[in-house]
Simulated assay, not measured.
Amino acid sequence: MTTYLDHQVIHWNKGTSTSLPHKLVGEEPLSIRIQGNPYSVIMRTPGDEIAHVAGFCLAEGLADDPDDFTSIGFCDGSETNVVTVTLSKSRQEKIPQHLERRGFISQTSCGLCGKEIVDDLYQTIHPLEDGKTTDLGRAADCLGQLPRHQPLRGHTRASHAAAIYNSNYELLSVAEDVGRHNALDKAIGKLFLARKLRDASLLVLSSRISYELVQKAARARIPVILAVSRPTALAVKLASQLNMSLACLAKGSGLYIFCCHHRLLSLSSM
């Protein structure tokens, strides 16, 4: 699979033109089939397809546990853009409403009425427990180190990344993709399939924080999100109701904290 392509470009600068090599981030459709039926098509950067689909299924409520999958794999070899998921019989019986959908657009990457989204998600996702506190200084260091884990961005300057850390600020999982939703699905999916999602405590994002990303983190039970850019109003509202802490880089230096600051330490030093 190609994550980026070489392309020749013309660099214009103050009346002069120069031909230069340039790298373009790859983007291809990924078709997800559930129980043999088309379920969703996602535009993404090729790579980590199995983890991507596993994370997608967790976020969408198709699976709650890796044992819910009877099988998950490529439709025809490893060089295809189609992944097929077969769910266990017991899981199928729990989610008939999901399996009856046709022409489905992912609820974690589309726009509906804001109030409707928050109300519906609050009914299906339980608020997170307070648990351990997070040291903002160390969490900010994780955010600052994110570029080190973005080789695709280094080549193309056109990809997003999601990195997940444990309570000791050790990197558990990281993924890149042209889509920020896809990057997070991939990072979560790796831990989900490895049965290590319970260790996740901190999520670091290269993008803004949208409600979809809060939803995905909530399904994965990750209580703290730090990002380069600010959250949307809907993201803050949803995170507040789900007892999740959101913060982003502040103008100049430090962090802006938007909700649930009780989980974050070192506030006086920021």
Results as ranks from 00 to 15, higher is better:
A218V: 05
D135K: 08
A163G: 07
T3M: 12
E100R: 14
E27S: 15
Y39K: 03
V174H: 08
L267D: 06
Q92T: 11
F56R: 04
H11K: 15
V204M: 04
V25K: 02
R153G: 08
V25F: 01
L265E: 14
Q107M: 06
G137M: 13
I117G: 01
K196I: 06
V178T: 11
S173P: 00
I50D: 00
Q107S: 09
P231R: 01
C75G: 14
L62W: 07
E170P: 01
N81E: 14
D135C: 10
H155S: 08
V178W: 10
R44L: 12
R263S: 07
K115T: 08
A183M: 06
S88L: 02
T86D: 15
N182T: 12
H160N: 12
R153C: 11
V204H: 04
V83S: 01
C259G: 07
I10S: 12
H149C: 09
S159C: 04
V118W: 01
E212W: 14
F74T: 08
C248P: 02
D185A: 08
L128P: 11
N37L: 12
N166A: 09
A247P: 03
D76C: 11
T2A: 10
Y39H: 11
V174T: 10
Y211M: 10
Y122H: 11
P96Y: 04
P127G: 05
S269G: 05
D76P: 02
P21E: 07
A59G: 12
L128F: 12
Y256C: 13
H98K: 15
L58E: 02
R101G: 05
K89H: 12
T134H: 08
G144K: 04
A247Q: 02
P223H: 01
T134D: 07
A194Y: 11
T80W: 03
A139L: 06
K216R: 15
I50G: 03
N243E: 07
Y256N: 15
L267F: 03
V85K: 01
F69S: 01
G114W: 07
R101H: 09
L58D: 03
K94T: 10
D120T: 15
G61R: 10
G189L: 07
S78E: 15
